[in-house]
């Protein structure tokens, strides 16, 4: 059976961790500012004519992916996680890829074409 949890934090461990976290606070603020900048950039770029609507969509999705990456990597702490979390995410990515692959198959219908 599982062991009962430790409910009392060890003082020296807590202090060490607190020091570690305090170093990241400035980074969180910088990432927040960067996300706001990228939001303004997304709005600006949407009014730039890149030739085709598809090109505009592609540009906006690239910026959105960078923003999402920052949120996941920094705010959601994926920069330093345990292996199990990455394994869960790899499986998720495979299923999402499969889902969007279905759209490709349905839209371009490569079997018929």
């Amino acid at each position: 059976m599982n062991n009962p949890p430790t409910t009392e934090p060890v003082d020296h461990e807590t202090e060490h961790y607190a020091h570690d976290v305090s170093k990241h606070v400035r980074g969180y603020l910088i990432v927040g500012g960067t996300l706001l900048f990228f939001t303004a950039l997304t709005v600006f770029l949407s009014y730039v004519n890149f030739g085709t609507q598809k090109a505009n969509v592609a540009v906006a999705m690239v910026v959105a992916t960078i923003k999402a990456g920052l949120v996941a990597y920094i705010f959601m702490h994926l920069s330093a996680e345990k292996k199990l979390i990455y394994r869960i995410l790899i499986f998720t990515a495979i299923f999402v890829f499969g889902l969007f692959w279905l759209i490709y198959l349905a839209w371009y219908d490569p079997v018929v074409h």
């Binding site: 599982n2 062991n3 009962p4 949890p5 430790t6 409910t7 934090p9 345990k82 292996k83 199990l84 979390i85 869960i88 995410l89 499986f91 998720t92 299923f95 999402v96 889902l99």
Partner: peptide, 30 residues
């Protein structure tokens, strides 16, 4: 008392709720 809410489980290296929320988020992605 629910186990491993604070300390990490030896096998996963994670406290349980963290594994739980990531599994939930995986379903949310879908």
């Amino acid at each position: 008392e629910i186990p491993y809410t604070v300390t990490a489980r030896p096998d996963t290296g994670l406290w349980n709720a963290k594994v739980g929320i990531w599994l939930f988020l995986a379903s949310e992605v879908m």
